[in-house]
């Protein structure tokens, strides 16, 4: 018998820029061992939005640009993405200046026919940390140009507020640097963001390696999860996509149900009244 909890039956929709998404799991499309693996992982994740990007196209060899094998057949890759029916979220990965990001965003809008954009402006090559100044500058210009900007940002509260000030309606703070699988590196900052911005959709983006980490972010009250490497580089990407999907749902349900407060001292769950063999001393 299927049982739906009271918490999930009364959940609010996952709304970004006025659009309701059917899943709180956003999945990346890079690094898979094959296009088929990517397609089946998207299905197993039950996601409704996927990220993708743009890269240079070599003359006379239009399908040979990609470095990972999942995209050696560019036509197959694109066909699977279209067939998935998912909303597209192009990124500006690798851009190091606002100018680069803005121009790549315009190229993405023309190709993918969407205003939605995962904005990335890299500030450092070691940890691919977003550049706070470039991010705000690029976001301000892109919002003016009509983009729906989903900024990939750090967990810095003030930076998040500045991004909201220039017109972003969603924030996507990192859990940890991209591809590290380290999970939630700074829980204090992530909780602070959630508490200070209670009405803003917050999505943990990047750095997760295990479904339990995604569940923890959702238990904190985060609205969604975006990840790629943890699924694509798993031994079984399809199985891992399904595992993350379940963890994200479980974390959301736990948040809605209300976690207990932590306590330093023990408190027996079994009644103490009527304890046998007990005698007052």
């Amino acid at each position: 018998m299927s049982v739906q909890s009271h918490a999930t039956s009364t959940d609010t929709p996952f709304v970004l820029y006025g659009e309701t998404l059917s899943s709180r799991f956003i999945l990346g499309t890079a690094l898979y061992p094959s296009p088929q693996s990517m397609r089946d992982s998207i299905a197993a994740a039950n996601t409704s939005m996927v990220t993708l990007s743009l890269r240079r196209q070599n003359p006379n060899t239009p399908s040979s640009v990609s470095q990972d094998s999942s995209q050696q057949d560019g036509d197959t890759f694109w066909q699977y993405i279209r067939d998935s029916g998912c909303r597209l979220l192009p990124n500006t990965a690798g851009c190091k200046t606002p100018r680069e990001a803005i121009n790549l965003a315009e190229m993405s809008r023309e190709i993918f026919n969407t205003d939605w954009l995962k904005l990335e402006v890299v500030g450092d090559d070691y940890n691919l940390q977003p550049c706070p100044f470039g991010l705000v500058e690029a976001a301000a210009e892109l919002v003016k140009r009509g983009f729906k900007v989903l900024p990939y940002t750090t967990d810095d509260l003030v930076l998040g507020q500045k991004l909201l000030d220039v017109g972003c309606e969603v924030l996507m703070p990192w859990g940890a640097p991209i591809g590290t699988g380290q999970g939630l590196m700074n829980r204090y900052n992530l909780r602070t963001l959630r508490e200070r911005l209670p009405d803003i959709p917050l999505i943990v983006d990047a750095g997760l390696g295990a479904p339990s980490q995604a569940a923890e972010a959702m238990e904190m009250g985060y609205d969604g999860i975006l990840l790629n490497t943890a699924v694509a580089k798993a031994n079984d990407p399809i199985g891992m996509a399904h595992a993350f999907a379940k963890a994200i749902e479980a974390g959301r349900e736990a948040y809605l149900s209300g976690l207990i407060h932590k306590s330093q001292t023990a408190s027996p769950s079994t009644p103490t009244l009527g304890q046998p063999f007990w005698h007052q001393t």
């Binding site: 890079a30 743009l54 240079r56 990609s66 993405i81 990124n91 990965a93 190229m107 023309e110 591809g179």
Partner: peptide
């Protein structure tokens, strides 16, 4: 350069051109 301008934009010596296509991304 928007697609609508491809026929009117003329290339010059020394220009740097980027032409991109969709790939997987995270």
């Amino acid at each position: 350069v928007p697609r609508s301008q491809y026929t009117t934009v003329t290339l010059h010596d020394g220009d740097t051109i980027d032409i991109v296509k969709p790939v997987g991304g995270g």
